[in-house]
Nucleic acid binder design. Structure first.
Length: 265
DNA sequence: CTGTAGATC
DNA sequence: GATCTACAG
């Protein structure tokens, strides 16, 4: 009888250990195989002029408290991320990782400006968690309706098209934060006069980059009209965009304002 | 896709 | 304030 009890105990322990191992393996496995994880861009993060960086699960923010918004938002965009799920939009909430508090959504109410995503919700549709994470107020900037839903939306769609075509992109987006901008709300959220988006395709043999600088206004012009060099955006923002790149490659990519390698379809 | 506003509890 | 539905480019 004592033997039998011992064997039962042994079996129970074996199951418990087995489950423990299985559980941990399974947990590790989902985080590794789910391409949703760790897309906050560990490589190629720009420099931060503020030192206030929030690493979220699906994108990274450098926040500038003076302007009550991000100076940049960076993330990876892979072809596998592009999905057409129809998630319900959640409410915008403050970013818990910003100690100085990201701007409240109340600043935008009746301001005449939309809450424009920097990391678009449409780029994070591979999971509800990723989608919802784009609705943090640190990922938002004031944009007029005609810009956000117009040429800016066109640029975001083109970026998704390139992600599908070129497989994997590193994207950096922000408003140009400069003195004397108009502000909205009680917290004085600055309204940028220009927005930029920089895209890196770090894939041999043809590593390529493209940068856009757009005036904050309605436009029907072709997207390529807004292509500039990364150097130009660095001059305007004081941000070093790809410090992790090999210097000679960085120089070459950043001084170019050619879009020859990018298909505008 | 990108968004907002009004009604309701 | 949260939630639902309707609507606009």
């Amino acid at each position: 009888m004592r033997n039998r009890k011992f064997i039962y105990t042994l079996i129970s322990v074996a199951f418990a250990v087995g489950f423990y191992i299985y559980d941990n393996y399974y947990a590790a496995d989902t985080s590794n195989t789910n391409s949703a994880q760790n897309t906050s861009t560990s490589a190629f993060l720009p420099s931060s002029t503020t030192g206030v960086i929030a690493r979220h699960n699906f994108y990274t923010v450098s926040y500038n408290e003076n302007f009550e918004q991000a100076e940049w938002v960076a993330y990876e965009l892979e072809s596998s991320h592009i999905k057409s799920a129809n998630f319900k939009r959640p409410y915008f909430v403050e970013d818990p990782q910003i100690s100085t508090k990201s701007a409240s959504y109340r600043n935008y109410k009746n301001s005449g400006y939309n809450k424009g995503h920097l990391c678009p919700a449409g780029d994070r549709k591979f999971s509800k968690e990723a989608f919802d994470e784009t609705f943090l107020m640190s990922n938002v900037t004031p944009q007029i309706y005609e810009f956000n839903g117009g040429i800016w939306n066109r640029l975001e769609q083109k970026t998704r098209y390139w992600a599908k075509k070129y497989k994997k992109l590193y994207v950096v987006t922000g408003g140009v934060l400069e003195p004397n901008l108009k502000t909205i709300g009680s917290e004085n959220v600055a309204v940028p006069n220009y927005f930029y988006k920089i895209i890196l395709d770090y894939q041999e043999p043809e590593i390529k980059a493209i940068a856009f600088l757009m005036p904050h206004k309605k436009s029907e012009k072709a997207l390529y009209k807004y292509v500039v060099s990364i150097d130009e955006i660095e001059k305007l923002t004081g941000i070093d965009f790809f410090p992790e790149l090999d210097d000679s490659l960085e120089d070459k990519l950043e001084k170019s304002n050619s879009y020859a390698n990018w298909s505008f379809r």
